[in-house]
C-alpha cells in the first residue's frame, strides 16, 4: 500500500515538474508546480515527518506560489513569449544538468551501499517542537507575533491610496 502511494506521487511529482518546465502558459506551469509541491509533501508524510509536510504545503504551496501567481497575473504575462533557443536557456540547461549530476554523484558515490538510518521519530515529531516553541521559546514566539503585526500595519500604511489620508 505504502509503495503504491509512493509510486503514484513520485510519478505525479516527476510529470508535474516536467509540465512546469515545458508548458507554454506560465499560469499552467505555476499550477502544476502546486501539484509537484503537494506530491513532495506526501513524500514527507510517508517518511514520517508530518510537520515538514504541513510546512511544505503552508509555506511553499500556500504562500510562495500564490505570490508567483499574483506576479504573473499582475504583469499579465501571456504564454509563448520566448520560443526557440537562446543563450539564457542554454545556460539554464547547463546549470540544471550540472546540479543534477552533482546530486547523483553525491548520492551514488557517498551514500550508495551505506546503511543510512532514516530520521528518528523524535527529531521531527510535533510534541517536542510544540514544547520548544510554546515553552522554552515562548517569549520570542510572542514577540514575533507583535513583529508580524507591525509588518502588516506597515504594509497597509505604505499601500493605502493617497487621497485617503485623514480620518
Amino acid at each position: 500500500m505504502e509503495m503504491a502511494v509512493f509510486l503514484l506521487f513520485a510519478a505525479l511529482a516527476l510529470v508535474s515538474s516536467l509540465v512546469v518546465v515545458l508548458h507554454r502558459n506560465p499560469i499552467y506551469a505555476v499550477m502544476s508546480l502546486v501539484v509537484t509541491f503537494v506530491s513532495i509533501a506526501v513524500m514527507f508524510v510517508l517518511l514520517g515527518a508530518p510537520f515538514l509536510a504541513a510546512v511544505q504545503v503552508l509555506v511553499y504551496t500556500g504562500a510562495i506560489l500564490v505570490l508567483f501567481l499574483f506576479v504573473i497575473m499582475l504583469l499579465n504575462v501571456s504564454g509563448d513569449s520566448s520560443r526557440g533557443f537562446d543563450l539564457h536557456k542554454a545556460l539554464a540547461a547547463v546549470v540544471a544538468a550540472g546540479f543534477a549530476l552533482l546530486l547523483l554523484t553525491l548520492f551514488w558515490g557517498r551514500y550508495h551501499g551505506l546503511d543510512l538510518s532514516p530520521l528518528q521519530e523524535s527529531d521531527v515529531a510535533l510534541k517536542p517542537l510544540a514544547r520548544a516553541l510554546l515553552d522554552t521559546y515562548l517569549l520570542p514566539f510572542e514577540i514575533v507575533g507583535l513583529l508580524l503585526l507591525a509588518a502588516v500595519t506597515a504594509a497597509t500604511v505604505l499601500a493605502r491610496r493617497s487621497q485617503d489620508t485623514s480620518s
Binding site: A150, T153, A154, T156, V157, R160, T165, S166, S167
Partner: peptide, 9 residues
C-alpha cells in the same frame, strides 16, 4: 497623515 497607525507603530 493618519494618526492611528503612526501612534500604533
Amino acid at each position: 497623515y493618519r494618526p492611528a497607525e503612526f501612534y500604533s507603530l
